[in-house]
Design a protein around this nucleic acid. Structure first.
Lengths: 336, 336
DNA sequence: TTTAAAAATACAATCGATTGTATAAATAAA
DNA sequence: TTTATTTATACAATCGATTGTATTTTTAAA
C-alpha cells in the first residue's frame, strides 16, 4: 500500500549513471548531454519519480515558498490581493502560505518567527495595526530575505512598498462631498501609526484647504474603524448637528455608521452624505448604496508578488515605492 | 550581517557531548539524564540555537503541517472555520497552510499534488463544487495520511466527516416559512453532486411533506448559487405569481434575489418571505435583514482540526461522521 | 598521431537532525 | 570485590538532493 518513493539513487542505479548526473539532468543543467538527459528523464517518468522537496530544501536552504502576512483574510480587499499574489506565484512556480495577524503585534511576531524557522524565501506583508516595532521583520531581512509591503507601507531599509494613492483618493472623495454641497464634513480616521490612515487624513485636510473650508479637529474621529467603532463615532457625530457629510477611511465603519444614523432618523444622503473606502461587496448592497473608493487589489497582489520573486531570484534588494491609482465609485449615499 | 546558524553540532562541539545526545536532550528524550539535559538546554539558549526544521522534516518525513483546502477563503463561513482550525493547530503545535480551490476540480487536483510533494501531514478539505472523482485524495491517503472532510462530506473510506445537520436545518427553515403562512415555497438548490445541497433539498421536501403541501418540481431551481444565479433564478420565480416564499441554500443567492425582487416591486416579506443559509455578515445588514441558518463555523474548525491531529499523532484512521447543530436566526425577511 | 582543450560524467562531501546499535559508566546484586 | 544489570552516552548510518572538484571521454588543433 504505502509505496516507497523513487529517489535519484534508484534512477542512478538502474541506469548506471551517477546520482549527481541524474540530479543535474533533472534540473536541466547544461553539464549533461542532451542524450543522457533524455535517458534520465524518460526513466524518471517511467519509475514515477517525484523530487523530494524536503531534501532539496535542506540542501539549498530554500523552499520556493513565499508568505502572505495580513490582518484578516476575510476582508474583501485582502482576499482580492491574495488572488493576485496566487496567480503570479503559480506562474513563477512558488508556493504561497497565508497567515493572519488579526492586527495583533504578538501574533505577527510569532508568525514571522515561524516563517523564519520554516525558511520561506520572502514575505509579502500588510502590517498589523498594532505594529510599531519592526525588529521581527529586520531579523527576517538580516537572513538575506526580501520583504515587500503592500497596502500599509513601512519604511524599513531595502524594502519595496506597493500602495495606492491614498492622499489623492482621499482628496477626491472629500472634494466629491464638497462639490455635493457639504459644508461640515466629518472624517473617520484610523490609527495614525499606520501611514495609510495618516495619508487619508491628509487628503481629507488637503481638500478642505483647497476649498477654504476651515479645519475643525472636532470633526475628526480616530478609531480602529471596526463595526462597533462606526456606531460609537456616529453617536459622537450627532452631537454636532452641523455635520452634513462623512468621509470614512473604510467601508466597515461607514456602513455601521449609516445604519445607526438611519435609526436616529437621519436621511442619507439628504441630511448627511457619506463616502467610504475599500469598495467592500456590501457597499453595493446596502441602502443607500455606498459611494466608496475602489482599490485595485488583484493588481496590487500581482505586482507585489512579482517584485518579491524578482528579488528572491536575483538576490537583489530594492528600495522603491510603487503607487497605484484607485477610483471613486459614486453611488447613492452621496447622490444629492 | 548574515549570521551563520547554530546547529546541534556546534553545541556538541562546545560541550564535548555527542550530537545525538544533544538532539535527544532537545527533544526531551528520557535517554538523557536530567543534568545533561539542563547543560545542553542552557547552552542551546545561550548560543541562540534554533532547530533547522528542514533537516528535521527530511529525516522524519513529517512536517508538522496540516493543510486546509476549501473553495474560497473570503466566504464568511469558511473564514470562521479557518479561525477555529488555526486556534487548535496552534495549541497542538502544527502549522497551517490554506489553499483555495475556487471550486475548480483542476485546481484542487494541483493543490493536492503539491501538498503531497510538500509532505503535509494531513488535509482538512471542503471539496470543490466540480469534484466528483477522488483519486487525488486517495493518493494522499495511500501514503498513510489522514483526511478530514468538513462542510461538504465525502464518502471515501477511512475518513472523518464533520458537517452540520443540513436536513434538519433545512426542514426547520422551510417549516418556518410554512408557519408564516407561505403556500408556494420556492427553493434555490445547489449542485446535487454535493451531498450538502442534496440534504438541504431533502429537508425542504420533508417539511413540505409533513405539512401536506404538494411538491412542485417547478419551484426548485438548481444553480451554483452565485450572485448572478440569484438574479436569474429570481427572474424565473416571477413567472409563477403564486410563489410567496423562498428558501435558498445560501445567503448569496438569497440576497441578490431579494434585491432583484425589490426592483420588480415585490415587498419582502409581505409578498415573498425569504430564508437563506450561512448567516453571512451581510444578512444582518441588508434591508430587510435576512432570516438565515447560522452554522457553528469556528467550532467545526476546532473539531475538524482536533480529529485530524488525533489521527496524525496516533497514526490511526477512522471512519466516523460528526454532525453539529445549526440554528435558525429569524429576522425581518420572513417576519410577517 | 600526439597533444591540448573542452565537454561529459563520476566522486565525495554536505545540508542538520534523527535513531538503531554499540559501548562505557553507574548502580545493584552476589 | 566481582559480576550482573541498568542507565547514560557515543558511534555511525541515514533521510535525498545538491554541488565543488576530480577524472574520464570526446573533440579539436597541431
Amino acid at each position: 500500500m504505502n509505496q516507497k518513493k523513487i529517489t535519484i539513487h534508484d534512477i542512478s542505479r538502474v541506469l548506471g549513471i551517477d546520482s549527481s548526473t541524474v540530479s543535474r539532468a533533472l534540473n536541466d543543467s547544461d553539464r549533461v548531454t542532451q542524450k543522457t538527459k533524455e535517458l534520465i528523464l524518460n526513466k524518471a517518468k517511467e519509475l514515477g519519480y517525484q523530487r523530494n522537496i524536503l531534501a532539496s530544501n535542506l540542501r539549498t536552504n530554500k523552499t520556493q515558498t513565499i508568505a502572505i502576512v495580513l490582518p484578516r483574510i476575510s476582508r474583501y480587499f485582502f482576499a482580492t490581493v491574495i488572488a493576485g499574489i496566487e496567480e503570479t506565484a503559480q506562474e513563477k512556480g512558488f508556493n504561497v502560505v497565508i497567515c493572519q495577524s488579526l492586527d495583533s503585534f504578538e501574533r505577527e511576531k510569532k508568525i514571522i518567527h515561524n516563517l523564519i524557522a520554516n525558511r520561506v524565501d520572502g514575505i509579502l506583508i500588510s502590517i498589523a495595526m498594532e505594529t510599531t516595532n519592526y525588529e521581527h521583520l529586520e531579523s527576517f531581512q538580516s537572513l538575506g530575505n526580501p520583504i515587500v509591503f503592500f497596502d500599509r507601507p513601512c519604511h524599513l531599509d531595502n524594502c519595496v512598498n506597493i500602495t495606492i494613492d491614498n492622499y489623492t483618493a482621499s482628496f477626491k472623495a472629500t472634494e466629491h462631498l464638497i462639490l455635493k454641497g457639504c459644508k461640515h464634513i466629518a472624517h473617520f480616521s484610523g490609527k495614525q501609526n499606520i501611514d495609510l490612515y495618516k495619508q487619508r487624513k491628509e487628503g481629507y485636510l488637503g481638500a478642505l484647504q483647497k476649498y477654504q473650508i476651515p479645519i475643525d479637529e472636532n470633526l475628526i474621529f480616530e478609531s480602529n474603524l471596526s463595526e462597533e467603532d462606526g456606531v460609537i463615532m456616529a453617536k459622537k457625530m450627532l452631537e454636532n448637528p452641523e455635520i452634513d457629510g462623512l468621509y470614512s477611511s473604510n467601508d466597515t465603519a461607514a456602513i455601521s455608521a449609516i445604519q445607526y444614523l438611519k435609526t436616529q432618523g437621519k436621511k442619507i444622503p439628504q441630511d448627511i452624505a457619506v463616502v467610504g473606502f475599500n469598495n467592500d461587496p456590501i457597499a453595493a448592497i446596502i441602502e443607500p448604496s455606498l459611494t466608496t473608493v475602489n482599490q485595485p487589489g488583484f493588481e496590487i497582489g500581482k505586482i507585489a508578488a512579482n517584485q518579491l520573486i524578482l528579488q528572491i531570484e536575483n538576490k537583489t534588494s530594492q528600495n522603491n515605492s510603487l503607487i497605484l491609482n484607485s477610483e471613486l465609485i459614486i453611488r447613492d449615499s452621496s447622490n444629492r
